[in-house]
């Protein structure tokens, strides 16, 4: 009888315990910004090819942001664009980020997530449907001047990710190996973050790294008076390819995630 009473008491006790299925859903604010040392004015630096670059304008359209607890295999080349069941945070509103400013530029809507540690982040550079066959939204809008050996290269870049970024498929066995959605998603970006209720997810984007490998002398010249070099917005030019593939889609150093509790 004592055992029975003990069992009933145990049941009662368990009923009052804060038992759980594990984990928690959280909401948080989200903001994007340029590098911490940006002043809001022009940003000057020297790229890896020795160009002295001064950015007078750098705006990036961020469509959405996700945090994922799974690290894609082989740099996302062999995985689908979306990995169902592995996402731990999302910010589903777009923001145009002034990359020359260090101040926080909030996403219009709060982010949602789980109290689970993320491993990588994803930045979706799209104006709408990630699978859209075309998209004319200007993702990167930048301008400035690059100088080397006494020669100046005033430049502008208005990059989009639509049909112009389609990668021709060489292997007939893999017609879907390079869908356009992969061109629009920058991942995996290291992001060991555990979202918490009420915190702020911060995405910092360093525009200097975008131009680190750009050979400005290869940017097509579109005007002599005044001189202007404009990125072609196609994968047909080494400078454009460098800005797009090695800059905008760079998984290291361009994008940095942090979480403020």
């Amino acid at each position: 009888m004592k055992r029975l009473l003990s069992f009933l008491l145990l049941l009662g006790g368990l009923a009052g315990c804060g038992n759980t299925t594990g984990g928690a859903r959280v909401s948080f604010s989200a903001a994007a910004a340029g590098p911490a040392d940006a002043t809001g004015g022009a940003l000057s630096f020297v790229n890896q090819l020795g160009y002295s670059v001064t950015l007078s304008k750098a705006r990036l359209h961020v469509g959405a942001v996700y945090l994922n607890q799974t690290v894609p295999i082989s740099g996302a080349q062999e995985t689908a664009c979306i990995l169902p069941g592995t996402y731990v945070a999302q910010v589903l509103s777009s923001v145009d980020v002034n990359l020359l400013s260090a101040s926080m530029q909030p996403f219009p809507e709060r982010g949602r997530g789980l109290g689970t540690e993320a491993k990588v982040g994803e930045v979706w550079l799209t104006g709408g449907d990630i699978n859209a066959t075309d998209d004319r939204t200007v993702i990167l809008d930048a301008a400035g001047i690059a100088s080397r050996s006494g020669q100046d290269f005033p430049f502008s870049a208005r990059l989009t990710i639509g049909q112009n970024r389609t990668i021709p498929q060489k292997e007939p066995a893999y017609p879907g190996a390079n869908p356009l959605c992969k061109q629009r998603i920058v991942t995996p970006i290291p992001a060991e973050i555990t979202p918490a209720e009420g915190g702020t997810l911060v995405l910092r984007i360093d525009p200097r790294v975008l131009f680190h490998g750009v050979e400005f002398a290869e940017v097509p010249k579109v005007s002599d008076t005044p001189p202007l070099y404009r990125f072609s917005d196609r994968n047909d030019n080494p400078a454009d390819t460098s800005l797009f593939q090695n800059g905008l889609r760079s998984r290291a150093n361009v994008y940095t995630f942090s979480f403020l509790d």
């Binding site: 996700y66 979306i82 169902p84 945070a89 999302q90 589903l92 777009s94 949602r112």
Partner: peptide
């Protein structure tokens, strides 16, 4: 506009 990939 974007898919809700986090459990909701």
């Amino acid at each position: 506009a974007f898919p809700t990939l986090v459990p909701m």
